[in-house]
Simulated scan of single mutants.
Amino acid sequence: MTAVSGPVSEALAELPLVDHHCHGAVTADLTGGEFASLITEGEAWPGVSPFDSPVGVAVRRHCAPLLDLPRHAPPADYVARRAELGWQEVNRRFLTAAGAEVFCVDTGYAPHPVTSPAELGRAAGAAACEVVRLERIAEAVAARGVEADGYAAAFRGAAEEAVRRPGVVAVKSVAAYRTGFAFDPAPPTGAEVTEAAAGWLTRGGRLADPVLVRHLLWTAVELGLPLQLHTGFGDADVTLHRADPALLTDWLRLTSGTVPVLLLHCWPYHRQAAYLSAVFAHVHLDVGLALHYSGPARCRAVLEEALEITPFRKLLYSSDAYGVAEFHHLGALSFRRGLAALLQARVDADELSLADALRIAAWAGRDNARRLYGPPVSEPARDPSGRPTRKV
């Protein structure tokens, strides 16, 4: 997609974004194979390079210049230049290029050594907040040892302790991966939780019991913080049709009037998510992850479909970047260009006033997230003079 010009594009280019859901960037230099594995959500493809995919092409086109390479640089040159610069400089370049004033960092997924929220913020010259993944809390409680009849109280106590940490602004569940969303929407009874906990604690492994996942989600509501839910597109661990957010409809009815529910990523169910955001006051969504995997060439189409009926105060920006800092940058670039193109087209067709388009751009890129999560709660990185390196 060719970048559009005009006041909407200019406003979005200058807008400090709030990336309301992302992960850390790796803290090690990567081989070609390691880098390739991090730019796909799938398994290794024998004889096929992940560079030969929409996201791989987008990396070579839009990220290579930030490494002082020509556009469309060959993969071997790209990986070699990355190694030459070193991971610290690579992270700094891409994270600052993202132009975010705040990163909300999910710390519950780290199969590789990655930056903490504070380290990510320092590299970007931005503020950073934490999103607590509740399944990880539950599994830590089980690993420490607990009796089945004490599990519910132990999990609640550990979750409350976690969300009291400085900088925590939200909680997250990956129920979509563990059980899918076709669960009994009612809160389980204490006896049901105890029985399910007895089985899980005997079996071991990760939390995937439907009763305990329901208990986790209802505990999240009681904690009172915004609740992020992975939906739709993810790695091969998700059974996609069970991650359709429309399956949450009955649960959303029961939780109406409680905490904000943020439906993350959503593709290919972004139209279902849009419906839910239109009919439930507490439901919001983003199309993160799909942004950089579709890239600037197609992100406008994804955003247009998401915005067919989504109320404009309900769409948020996220990158869901993990591992390679290219994705923090590419998600932001795709979002800015895609949203600018569709809003400008509506202005040109006299379907939107310019003033409305500028408001919608600011809402989606920053203000909707600030309304839900509050202002930044960690200080931005500062230069040696003590001045913030990015205005927050």
Score class of each variant (00 low, 15 high):
residue 3 A to D: 14
residue 11 A to Y: 04
residue 13 A to G: 13
residue 19 D to T: 04
residue 21 H to C: 12
residue 27 T to A: 12
residue 29 D to G: 15
residue 43 E to K: 12
residue 48 V to E: 11
residue 49 S to G: 08
residue 56 G to N: 02
residue 57 V to Q: 14
residue 59 V to M: 10
residue 65 P to R: 02
residue 66 L to Q: 09
residue 73 A to D: 00
residue 81 R to D: 06
residue 82 R to I: 05
residue 85 L to I: 13
residue 87 W to I: 01
residue 87 W to V: 01
residue 92 R to P: 06
residue 99 G to K: 01
residue 104 C to S: 15
residue 104 C to Y: 11
residue 113 P to H: 03
residue 117 P to F: 00
residue 122 R to N: 05
residue 122 R to T: 15
residue 124 A to D: 05
residue 127 A to Y: 08
residue 128 A to G: 03
residue 132 V to I: 13
residue 133 R to K: 10
residue 141 V to C: 02
residue 144 R to H: 13
residue 145 G to Y: 12
residue 150 G to I: 07
residue 160 E to T: 15
residue 160 E to S: 14
residue 161 E to P: 14
residue 162 A to E: 14
residue 163 V to Y: 11
residue 165 R to F: 03
residue 166 P to G: 02
residue 171 V to Q: 08
residue 174 V to D: 04
residue 187 P to A: 11
residue 190 G to L: 03
residue 199 G to V: 06
residue 200 W to E: 10
residue 204 G to M: 06
residue 210 P to Q: 08
residue 222 E to N: 10
residue 232 G to T: 11
residue 232 G to D: 13
residue 235 D to K: 06
residue 247 L to N: 02
residue 248 L to A: 08
residue 252 L to K: 11
residue 255 T to H: 01
residue 259 V to K: 11
residue 264 L to M: 12
residue 266 C to K: 12
residue 270 H to V: 09
residue 270 H to T: 07
residue 272 Q to M: 00
residue 272 Q to D: 02
residue 277 S to H: 03
residue 278 A to F: 11
residue 279 V to C: 10
residue 282 H to V: 07
residue 285 L to T: 04
residue 292 H to L: 08
residue 294 S to I: 01
residue 299 C to K: 11
residue 307 L to H: 03
residue 307 L to W: 06
residue 309 I to A: 09
residue 310 T to K: 01
residue 313 R to N: 14
residue 325 A to W: 07
residue 328 H to N: 05
residue 331 G to D: 00
residue 332 A to D: 13
residue 333 L to Y: 15
residue 334 S to D: 04
residue 342 L to W: 07
residue 345 A to M: 08
residue 349 A to W: 05
residue 356 D to V: 03
residue 358 L to F: 08
residue 359 R to C: 08
residue 361 A to D: 11
residue 362 A to N: 09
residue 370 R to D: 08
residue 371 R to Y: 04
residue 376 P to W: 12
